[in-house]
Amino acid sequence: MIDKKQTQHIAKLARLDIKEEELEDFQKDLSKIIDYFNIIEKVDTSDVPPTFHPTEEFLKIGMERMREDQVFSLSPEIVDRLIDAFPKKEKRYLLIKSIFQ
């Protein structure tokens, strides 16, 4: 069970603007779903390692052994498209609000 204050806190961590009238719905839904999740508490997982990657054993290069860094060049056409997607730009620079007062 999580309360409204916690719901608000989670929304803040997730950088989501949640309207006051939506808050109650989210609080109810999240509580119900998290209650359902609690079933996994019962499983004995002492000495059980986590599985972050389901088929890691089939990779020639494991998660620990990373490949060498290599420079891939991106075609100028793709770079242009990425720049085109900027919501705000000046020439080919991404424009953001100033972060210092």
């Binding site: 999580i2 989670i10 989501l16 309207k19 989210f26 999240l30």
Partner: peptide
Amino acid sequence: YFQSRGRGFGKEVKRRIMLGTF
């Protein structure tokens, strides 16, 4: 951040982002 995500995402996506954040 807050407004673009708050208005850009639908309800189920927000619900799941919040579940995962929790």
